[in-house]
Structure formats: structure tokens, C-alpha cells
Design a binder for these strands. Structure first.
Length: 741
DNA sequence: GCAAGGTC
């Protein structure tokens, strides 16, 4: 008897095996892939694992221009990451000849499909039809054993739900993205990478809405009145923003020369509970605040820490730390580090974490394992310390904050100010990432008189709503239930990649606005959250037998085809607008011919350069050295935009004119001086002027890449010096390339 | 090349 259990990821395979038998042995397939095996009462059990989805959808035939005829293929055939190949091979090989199959992936829609596909395509022989299903909500021994003893059939409706979700996303995403790109090609015969999808498009739409709010915002002037006194006191007038200028003037005039009466002094103490444990969103948000990390960057570091065994599974939404984690043991491990020990020493005897509300069926909140890491990258080290100190502080005492609130009266006008200071550190002592309030409390009492040194009137303007940053956007997506905890960071990164958005404080670029405008016109559902909601409703209908998978897919295909037909009918217009917006995104300045200077990429030379929108009429081009950034300021000599480039010394950056010949005698540029013959190809050698000074290059460039310095010219042909010249080539080549245009 | 969803 041979039983094969398939889990969703390697870590769960280990937990399942260990829960089911104390004799479970860790083994390796092909020296790479871990699996577990044990034998009891003549039955051999092999616990294998997938690594998430092992199979991906792809369009069945390349002739099927529209992607509706989809099949499952091994993920490594269509995705960049290839590690799924080894896992598929391991499952294929090790499940051969098994009598019994157990589906032990996470009990949710995606998990059910992951296991189903692994059984169907890697195990074969209808394993998916014969398999039993374990149902557990945590990977504790108790849950696993119970799930194993009460196995059931695979719920085929759940499988269909998953398949339909994947297919609908493909129908809408792939086909509409492709239609947009085809529209650009039809109108401009250019290729630009465009995309739309059930999650990314509503996400972009949220940003566009905010962008439009900001752009249409009309600032309103208001005045703030403040009174300056001793002890660095700056008290605000109680009316706050004063929109009536006359009123502001009157207060100002009335307060002139008057002193302040202290009408009340109140000191209160408030309790600040410790922070709550991190789930993925919480960690991403804190790492953004503390280190300025993008959510994606945090996720990569957290994943590495998890794979290394130093912290727990990162893709969790839980803010809870169940007691079964054995806190004492974790702290004992952490205490081996002397820095951590100082903080652990101080913990209360009874360990009770302050928890948040959110839960997760499969995983607890992110926490250290107690295994101390070594050789962490800088990012990993930062994220690790964040996780450890947060973990410690979650168990610590409350901290206390004292607030002093003082009311003043200056010639019948009321002013107020407050000061805050931490009166008891508590958990703050263990969490170095939070700034502690430390204001000095001025020694004043009710009834005192304070000298007013000056009344300040500040004229200000109301501000538009704040821009999202990556962390606040991810929070918004969480709130609206768009995407999943595992994919949100990727979705946002994608919007940057497509050049729809830019900046840490996210600005939507013209291309992003145009994509949303276009989609609003042709498939409004895609830009709103409505599509996600509609999918949810329909797919849940599969679970309850209200709909079949086929009905839903037929419906989806019809809808997408209608949208595609409309886009196709208007593709010239759509393409023109999109391409126009795309170009606008890359406008860096104005050309002397009146055209626009546009940053472009040449696939032939693999260089980025700046060219004129009136090309081919205007042939002006400027090369951009590798790593150059366009700056907002313009050159004081010629008015072209300036760029920032690496200093010739390699350290720091220089700000220079886009035109490397700016301010120089340009005649030589038009007719370079012939200074000899190329020792490598025999063509003329030309004296050229580059960003770092004069040099000699071959007229056969780019086929011949010979270069040397002007000084080296005299030694050419003399064999003994040849090596010197060669050694310098690497350096000079770079310069030549930047001059190639 | 285009999605979104798992995961190392």
C-alpha cells in the first residue's frame, strides 16, 4: 500500500508529515526537492508538495488570436521562474504506482485548484478523481490529524470556481490588454507595453480619481494666527483656519501689545497600548514609514527571511499570535543575541500578546522563529529587526503619555497650545522605530501672566487631498478587497513598470489617465470594482449550484468579445490617443525647431536617447549616458533640459546640459578632424569631443569600437605600448557609446 | 508581450 499526500508548499508538507507520524523522514528528490516519507503497519506514505500553482493557463493554439480556448500547461513553460519544473518532476516520479492520493493543500479556492491540477496533470491516471481531501484551517498537529481522520471527496464545484476565476481573468486581462496594444500598432505602427485587468485597472482608476481631484482642486486662502511667548510657546488662535480676512485682521489688531492670561492648565495622562503583531500589510506599511521601502521590497526580504527559517510565513493577514507558538522558546532563541537579550530581560513573567482583530485561516501573524540569522542582506537585516522588536514590544507593558493643554486669553481672544511627553516608556523601550514625544512642559499655572512677544499672521492655502504612496495604496486595496495579500505589491509595481504612474507620492502619468479614459468608454466595468464583485457573485454561484462553470465562461466570453469588437471598430482613434499620451509621458523639453524633445529607446543600439517629435524632418538627437536622469531644471546657457550623470571619478553625480557640446565650439562636431588610421580596421581615426573631454575614435563605429586618448595616439603602432592602449579601451568605450548618436 | 493567483 502506497499513499501519496500532496500539500501546497514545502513548509506545509513538513508539518503534515510530522503531525501524522513521529517517524517521518526528510528526503530529497534529485538533491533539490524536499519530501517526507514514513512507513507504518505496512503502509508507505509519501508527503509531497507543490509550490503554489504548478500549472498555468495558456491560449491553446497560436492561431487562436483571441484567447478563449485555454488549456493548462506546466507553469515553467510560460512563466519566467522555472523552479516549478523540479517540483512537477518530483511529484511525477514519486507518485508513480501509488494506490491512494490525498489532497492536502490549503482549504480555499486557489488551494483546491492547486492540488487538483497537481493530481490531474502530474500524478495522472485520474488521481484527481480518486483522491481524498483533507480539510484543516491551521497547520497544528491537532487540526492535521483530525483532517486526516475525517477525509472527504474533493469538492468539484470549488475546483470549477477556481478554474473559472483563472479563465475569466485571462479572458478580460489578456484580450483587452492585447487589443489596446494592437490599437497603438494600428495607428502608429509602434509597440508599447500596455495592460489592463480585473485588479490593476480599478487600482489605477483609484489613483486617477485622486489625480483628477488634485488637479481640479481650487485652493482657498485662509489665515492662521499665532501668539509667541516665553518657553518657546507658540499658541494657536482657537478658531484655527480663519477664512475671513477681515476677521483675521481684526484679531491681529486687537491682540497688539496685549499680554496673555493663562486661563487653564490641564495635564492628563493617557495609556498607549503596545502595537499589534504584523500581518503582511502591516509590515509593508511600517517598513515604508520607517525605512522608505516599497511594499514589494519588503515582501521580497520577508520571503527570504522565511525561507531561511528566521521568521514565519509572511503572506498572512493575521494579527494574532496563538499561544501554541511557544513564546518562551522563541524568546530563549532570540536572547542568544546580546542586543535582543537586553530587551527580553525586561518582559513580564506572563506572556500575553496585544493582538489585532484580523485573522487568517492558515497562518498566525509574522513573528521570529527564534533561530538567529547570519549573513543577511542589508534589507533583510532591517526587516528582521523590525519583526523582532515588534514581536518583543507586543508582549510589553503599556506606555504612558502626558499631555499638557494650556488655554490663553489675549485681549479677549482665545489661544491654545499643547505639549506631549512620554511619562512611562513601557513597550516604547523595546521598539526603537517609534519616535517618542519629549516636549518640555513650561512651568506655568492658571492665573499666570505671559508676555506676548509677537502676534503672527500666516496666510496659507487649503491643500488638495494627499497623494497615495505605495503603502497607503495597498491599504486602500486591502480595504476594498481588491487583489490578495500576496499580489497587491506586484500589482502596484506593475503600474510603475507600465509607466502609468510615477514617484513615491504617486502621480498618474498621461498614459495612465488615458488608459482609464479609454476603458471608461469601452468597458466601464473593468475600471470600477464592479467586475470583481460580479465575478465574486457568479463564482460563488458555482459553489451553490446556482450556475455552472460553462454558463459563466460562455457569458464572460460573449461580454469580452463585445468589448473587443468595439475597441476594434475605434482602434485608430484609441491607438492615436494612447500613443500620444505615451509620448507626452516622455517629453523632456522643447526642441529649437519648435517640436518636442522626447526620451526614446533605440532597440538597435540598445541606448536611450533624446530625439525630436518632428523626426524625420528634424534630426536632432542627444545621447543619454547609462544611468542618466532627466532633471526638471534647464541649462542656463542654452535652455535645454539638464541631466544628472555619474561623475567621471565614479563618486557622486554631476548636473550637466543634455547637449554635451553645450557652450563648446561645435564646428568640430560637424567635421571631426582625421588624425590617423585605425590599427584595428584601417579606417580613419577621428578626434572627437565627449562629455569627459577629447578622445580619438574610429570612423567605423559602431562596427569597430577602437578608441584611445589623444595622448595615446602618438604611441599607436609601437608594439610595446599596445597593451596600454588596450587596457584603456574599456574606459574609453563608454565615452564613445555616449557619443554615438 | 498582455492577467491574477499561488509560491521558492
Amino acid at each position: 500500500m502506497h499513499e501519496v499526500i500532496i500539500s501546497e508548499k514545502p513548509k506545509s508538507a513538513e508539518k503534515i508529515a510530522k503531525a501524522l507520524s513521529p517517524n517521518a523522514q526528510k528526503k530529497k528528490y534529485n538533491r533539490k526537492i524536499n519530501y517526507w516519507e514514513f512507513e507504518e503497519n505496512g503502509k508507505k506514505t509519501t508527503v509531497l508538495s507543490a509550490v503554489g500553482h504548478l500549472y498555468s493557463l495558456t491560449s491553446a493554439s497560436s492561431r487562436d488570436r483571441l484567447g478563449f480556448d485555454l488549456t493548462w500547461v506546466p507553469a515553467y513553460e510560460v512563466e519566467k521562474q522555472k523552479y516549478t519544473r523540479d517540483y512537477i518532476n518530483a511529484i511525477k516520479k514519486l507518485s508513480k504506482g501509488a494506490d491512494k492520493f490525498v489532497h492536502a493543500c490549503d482549504y480555499d479556492v486557489e488551494g483546491t485548484l492547486i492540488g487538483y491540477n497537481a493530481l490531474k496533470y502530474a500524478c495522472g491516471n485520474n488521481a484527481e478523481a480518486k483522491a481524498s481531501r483533507m480539510k484543516f484551517s491551521t497547520l497544528t498537529k491537532k487540526d492535521i490529524v483530525e483532517a486526516y481522520n475525517t477525509m472527504r471527496d474533493i469538492d468539484i464545484r470549488q475546483v470549477d470556481h477556481g478554474i473559472a476565476r483563472h479563465m475569466l481573468d485571462y479572458y478580460y486581462g489578456m484580450n483587452i490588454s492585447s487589443a489596446l496594444m494592437k490599437a497603438v500598432r494600428a495607428s502608429s505602427s509602434r509597440f508599447i507595453s500596455l495592460s489592463a485587468g480585473r485588479v490593476q485597472t480599478p487600482t489605477l482608476s483609484i489613483l486617477v480619481d485622486r489625480e483628477k481631484e488634485i488637479q481640479s482642486f481650487v485652493p482657498e486662502p485662509y489665515w492662521m494666527i499665532k501668539a509667541k511667548s516665553d518657553y518657546d510657546i507658540i499658541a494657536d488662535h482657537v478658531e484655527g483656519k480663519i477664512f475671513d480676512e477681515e476677521r483675521a485682521k481684526k484679531i491681529y489688531a486687537d491682540c497688539q501689545g496685549a499680554d496673555a492670561d493663562v486661563t487653564s492648565v490641564k495635564v492628563t495622562e493617557s495609556i498607549r497600548k503596545p502595537p499589534i503583531p504584523f500581518n503582511l500589510g502591516g509590515l509593508q506599511s511600517e517598513a515604508h514609514t520607517v525605512f522608505g521601502f516599497s511594499p514589494k521590497r519588503t515582501q521580497v526580504a520577508a520571503q527570504n527571511l522565511y525561507v531561511g527559517g528566521y521568521t514565519s510565513y509572511p503572506r498572512t493577514s493575521s494579527q494574532k499570535l496563538p499561544e501554541s507558538l511557544d513564546f518562551k522558546n522563541i524568546f530563549a532563541g532570540l536572547a542568544k543575541d546580546p542586543e535582543f537579550k537586553k530587551h527580553i530581560f525586561d518582559l513580564p513573567a506572563k506572556l500575553k500578546p496585544n493582538e489585532g482583530k484580523k485573522t487568517d485561516a492558515a497562518h498566525p501573524a509574522i513573528h521570529p522563529t527564534g533561530v538567529l540569522p547570519s549573513n543577511l542582506s542589508a534589507d533583510e537585516a532591517k526587516i528582521y529587526s523590525l519583526i523582532v522588536y515588534r514581536f518583543i514590544s507586543v508582549f510589553s507593558e503599556n506606555s504612558k503619555l502626558e499631555t499638557m493643554k494650556v488655554n490663553l486669553k489675549v485681549a479677549d481672544e482665545k489661544f491654545t497650545f499643547s505639549r506631549k511627553r512620554v511619562s512611562y516608556e513601557g513597550w516604547l523601550k523595546h521598539y526603537p522605530f517609534k519616535k517618542q514625544e519629549n516636549d518640555a512642559f513650561p512651568p506655568i499655572n492658571k492665573g499666570d501672566q505671559l508676555k506676548i512677544h509677537k502676534i503672527l499672521v500666516e496666510e496659507k492655502e487649503t491643500k488638495p487631498p494627499a497623494r497615495y504612496n505605495e503603502a497607503s495604496l495597498i491599504k486602500e486595496l486591502e480595504k476594498r478587497e481588491l487583489g490578495t495579500k500576496a499580489t497587491r505589491a506586484d500589482i502596484v509595481a506593475k503600474l510603475y513598470d507600465r509607466k502609468y504612474i510615477e514617484g513615491k507620492k504617486i502621480e498618474v502619468k498621461p498614459l495612465g489617465i488615458n488608459i482609464i479614459d479609454t476603458l471608461n468608454e469601452y468597458c466601464k466595468d473593468l475600471t470600477s470594482e464592479e467586475l470583481t464583485r460580479e465575478f465574486e457573485r457568479e463564482l460563488e454561484g458555482i459553489d451553490t449550484d446556482k450556475y455552472t462553470k460553462e454558463q459563466i465562461l460562455e457569458n464572460g466570453e460573449k461580454e469580452v468579445k463585445t468589448i473587443l469588437a468595439e475597441i476594434n471598430q475605434n482602434k485608430k482613434q484609441i491607438g492615436e490617443k494612447l500613443y500620444g499620451a505615451y509620448q507626452e509621458t516622455n517629453v523632456v523639453g522643447e526642441c529649437s525647431c519648435g517640436g518636442k524633445l522626447i526620451k526614446r529607446y533605440s532597440p538597435r543600439t540598445k541606448n536611450t536617447f533624446v530625439g525630436c517629435s518632428n523626426f524625420p524632418k528634424c534630426k536632432v538627437t542627444y545621447s543619454l549616458p547609462k544611468g542618466a536622469n532627466m532633471l526638471k531644471k534647464t541649462c542656463p546657457t542654452c535652455g535645454l533640459p539638464m541631466i544628472s550623470i555619474k561623475k567621471a571619478s565614479g563618486k557622486g553625480r554631476d548636473h550637466v546640459c543634455l547637449d554635451s557640446n553645450c557652450g563648446k565650439d561645435v564646428s568640430r562636431r560637424q567635421a571631426p578632424e582625421v588624425v590617423g588610421k585605425c590599427p584595428e580596421c584601417g579606417k580613419d581615426l577621428l578626434k572627437r569631443s565627449g562629455r569627459y573631454g577629447e578622445f580619438v575614435g574610429c570612423s567605423g563605429f559602431p562596427r569597430c569600437r577602437f578608441t584611445c586618448s589623444v595622448d595615446e595616439l602618438n604611441n599607436l603602432g609601437k608594439d610595446k605600448n599596445k597593451e596600454d592602449v588596450k587596457e584603456n579601451k574599456g574606459v574609453s568605450k563608454k565615452i564613445v557609446r555616449s557619443e554615438a548618436k
